[in-house]
Design a protein around this nucleic acid. Sequence first.
DNA 1: GAGCACTGC
Length: 614
Amino acid sequence: MFLGETGSGKTTQIPQYLYEAGIGRQGIVAVTQPRRVAAISLATRVSSERRTELGKLVGYTVRFDDLTSDETRIKFLTDGMLLREAIGDPMLRKYSVVILDEAHERTIHTDVLFGVVKAAQKKRKELGKLPLKVIIMSATMDVDQFSQYFNGAPVLYLEGRQHPIQIFYTKQPQSDYLQAALVSVFQIHQEAPFSQDILVFLTGQEEIEAMTKTCRDIAKHLPDGCPQMMVMPLYASLPYSQQLRVFQAAPKGCRKVILSTNIAETSITIAGIKYVVDTGMVKAKKYSPEIGLEVLAVQRVSKAQAWQRTGRAGREDSGICYRLYTEDEFEKFDKMTIPEIQRCNLASVMLQLLALRIPNVLTFDFMSKPSPDAIQAAIEELDLLGAVERKEDQLVLTPLGRKMAAFPLEPKFSKTILLSPKFHCTEEILTIVSLLSVDSVLYNPPARRDEVQSVRKKFISSEGDHLTLLSVYRAFKNVSGNKEWCKENFVNNRNMMLVSDVRAQLRDICVKLSIPIESSRSDTGNIRRCLAHSLFMNAAELQPDGNYSTVGSHQLVTIHPSSVLFHCKPACVVYNGLLHTNKCYMRDLCVVDADWLYDAAPDYFRRKLRAAKN
DNA sequence: GAGCACTGC
């Protein structure tokens, strides 16, 4: 176990030491990363340090991109990718060492891998095979539970070269963190040399766009002698070209002020930041298994997250961080962010564990156990989808479940694909599922809403979002992905290209599983039937009072404003998921017949009806 | 009647 601060070079050096020590001769050294870009750039760097061609001694594997060969001995890969490999080989036989890097981030994939490598290690020992060495690397002090989990593994500490950062707290709690952020930005702006840039952490797109406008307005009316200000928003759904602006140096006499979500905490690193303004707030997802509801809410950051934000000020030189909360408030923050695995729907994770032939998934050795309710809810979902069965008192995958696990998708979407041959619409379902599994291909700049609406009219289907997206994709293919067309039609070109990649991958998997791929052509009824049969547990009916109620749990829900059905009142719909922000919203809707739902799962609805009566 | 943090297979 290595605990190393940022800049200690642990990720690039340790794999090379292991290789030089001869461990790489018995098997490959794997190094996992939570993000694709990190895996690729680290492989590139280590490969050039070894003075070898990338893809030979040193390589990487991420989704859609595999640059490894028979010679590869040091392999960087995303944690999700190693997990996928483990399904084909639970003992990870080709590896002599697995290094799980950035373990402190506690992504859902890293957390599952903790258990998978531990099980592989034990199994290999029992069978007298080459031992599997496991190294956990973390940048924070939470090593105790890592060490404990891995049977008291030794901990090594590495010195980093972080620059000192001065921290200021507010004297009083702030009731309005946006106002406080605004005041701090302009206070810094009037006092500090113009070459020192400011990074402000806020919670979301809307808030950031509003704050950007306010800052720009104020910056127009600054007193003489005050430097100019360039205000830049930064969040994930911002088009790539606009994200890139934050890397450009401001002109002389001008200061950069970047207003960002937590994307700038880890995913995007900006040089030249001297000041960090931390509102102490973040928008984060929680999950309540009882009603299958995701809740997205603004909440306090953890201490670890606050330190991560602070660290963004000291990357090249000493820095300054303004925390817009008192020191007492900070002391009350949670120590660590709750691991993702305790905040998610676990259907995918459980399906993967079953595919790994874990003996008893209900008692799987997680480092941080999810609640029994969450595990139970996931198993029930898999059961409804027909993915699991009981055999000799063990929970195992059905043949259908095993096929579902082959797809890199949420189980309900794998099921949609596997059902589609019955409705002769696999071509269309592949497209729809691909569109749903990447970030939105529809770009909605708030300032140009009317324009967007009039351009988008031609794609809109009265049958719902799935079919609307399908018509956008067809139009995109008709112009061969023309970039100008994308711009004119507010279609995100980058995400659309990704849809094509995903679709090709899913299509390949279908071919491998001998699934016939037919097109329903102009018949949209079959597509909707297929969606009704796979999303029946996500159905809602219009009530006499004009509200919607979910068929399963009688939850009051509303159509999300992003849906093409927002202004409509169809009698019966299925949706991809529920998201609770201010209200409980259904997202991505498809109009269906109530009869189809009952046909899809008569037992389920009979049970629900009985439960409602009791 | 009006809204979507961030990754990843």
